[in-house]
Amino acid sequence: MMHAKKPAGIFNRVSSADRVFDVVNIVIMTLITIVCVYPFYYCIVLSFNEGYDALNGGIYLWPRMFTLGNYKIIFQDGSMVGAFLITLIRTVLGTTLSLFLTSIMAFALIRRQLRLRRVYVTMGLITMYFSGGLIPLYLLIKELGMVDSFWVYIIPNLFSFYNTIIMMVFFREIPSTMIEASKIDGANEWQVYWRVVMPVSTAVIATICMYNAVYHWNAWFDGYIYISTPSLKTMALLLVEMINQGKAMEALRTSGNSLVLSGMSGPTENSVRLATMVVAVVPIMCVYPFCQKYFIQGIMLGAVKG
């Protein structure tokens, strides 16, 4: 984040204490980096290893018996592919719709000529600090007939006032001359929003989309509460079910037995689960480094005004 370089002259005059500090610092930072990344790397390695062989342990850096078998099982299993698609549709649709709703609201609220503007803003601020809680929301969604329907993923998550405020802060920074010029050219407010404001707001759009997309990709609780049809389950929800199954198994199992497995091969329950995890994480892992500068900006916008 900081690109300010110290003048080269200072480097030449580093005291030995400072050099020790530098070395220690680099070591600490390297350790933190490894600790952050290694657990998932370990899971990737295991997911590419033969299932029974992996149970013997001792695999740390790369697969001992490389196989794609675990992934083959996932991609041949209709429910996994289905869950992947549901998660993908949920993420894309949820992110797009909520960007639309948030941005039109934010745009309307920065226009001073909007009547009742203050009332709307106050209403929004109140939603940030009060909520009815889980049970009333559950009853409402039941009343609306969204239980066990795909829309329960999308509609209750369409709008948050916090994101609206981030957008408003950004929209305010757009030079008003740009908007005035387009008004003089005869643009109406919709055209101002669509052709002037949105095209110059890619940074904040990316921030909001990033937040929403990560939320949707990882969300499991709504599915857990509202969804029972297997074909509507998201990937996160399938993983939750795996955890719950695992807990039930753990309660039955007597611990301490560690027989050495030999002669058996093929995928195990564990190795397939690991592969599922990797499939669930890799899309995020590939996207977030590229959005880094945007979400940092978003946090700072939130922090400055929040």
Binding site: L101, I104, M105, M123, T127, P156, F159
Partner: peptide, 20 residues
């Protein structure tokens, strides 16, 4: 543009508040 969001807030934030 504003009322879409306001209506949404009424339904999904304010109606559940009554549920308290």
């Amino acid at each position: 543009m504003a009322l879409v969001g306001v209506a949404y807030m009424l339904l999904f934030y304010y109606a559940p508040m009554y549920g308290v």
